[in-house]
Design a protein around this nucleic acid. Sequence first.
DNA 1: TTAGTTGCAAATCGTTTGCATCAAG
DNA 2: CTTGATGCAAACGATTTGCAACTAA
Lengths: 143, 143
Amino acid sequence: MLENKEYKEVLKREGLKNTKHRTSILEVMEHSEVPLTAEEIFIRLKEWNVAISLSTVYRVLETLVTKDLVNKSSISNDSKALFEINRMEHKHHLVCMGCKKMVSVEGCPFEEFEKKIQGTNGFDITGHKLEIYGYCAECKHGK
Amino acid sequence: MLENKEYKEVLKREGLKNTKHRTSILEVMEHSEVPLTAEEIFIRLKEWNVAISLSTVYRVLETLVTKDLVNKSSISNDSKALFEINRMEHKHHLVCMGCKKMVSVEGCPFEEFEKKIQGTNGFDITGHKLEIYGYCAECKHGK
DNA sequence: TTAGTTGCAAATCGTTTGCATCAAG
DNA sequence: CTTGATGCAAACGATTTGCAACTAA
């Protein structure tokens, strides 16, 4: 499962050593539709029989974030950070308040709105984050 | 500075005892334009000569959040939680990535967008959160 | 009186770091 | 070889909790 050539180049391009840990972590994220916590990545690596320590997961993720290969975020009122591979596509998520499941949603209503407030207060806008909360089909019925 | 009658009723309505700590915390939040951390609230209380412990601040805030009198949130990649009094008005903020200053912004482009994805994936949407990132006038120049 | 509230210190949780070892270039 | 990457355990910062003392109702 774990043998990807393209990551070797990505890492080299960024001046990072090509280690199994790094490519494996990138693969785990590549295979996930939704952002993952460091611990979830750690667990998936174990399932793939990749021996690694949790602190290395954190260190690799931090490195990848500074290289802009990975995005770090979090959902409100949850203490754990989330990481997702930077696919360079602009996406938002529906977050279920019951099970914390996240679902991608197409589209973004901001291109214009952002321009509208661009310049307001002298602010130089670089980006935004949108989270939509609610209850997924399963959790809705449980309520 | 600290003597508000209306909070006594708010607390009673929610079945909470009326204590000086609770009304004081509500007042601190009432007087702030932007969300505050528990520690910032703690410090302002000290400035107002209200003796309180930090753990009580956390406990009171948690209680107020469950009663929906206060909203808890956080800005991305920052480990501290933010609290603001629930003014029942729908607002979003510009967050400066330099100094973390927050500025309120008028308007919200979502009423329609939210309806558009309402029902998608069986999701029952209850709300959303939008943060707009950038650099404020001062930090922009420092860059 | 009594159920809910508080202070204090210790515990917890996610994350980071120091240091000695190891491996990619 | 040399620099960067890793594991481990200890440190960290924000938040939570156990418990005994207190106080609003």
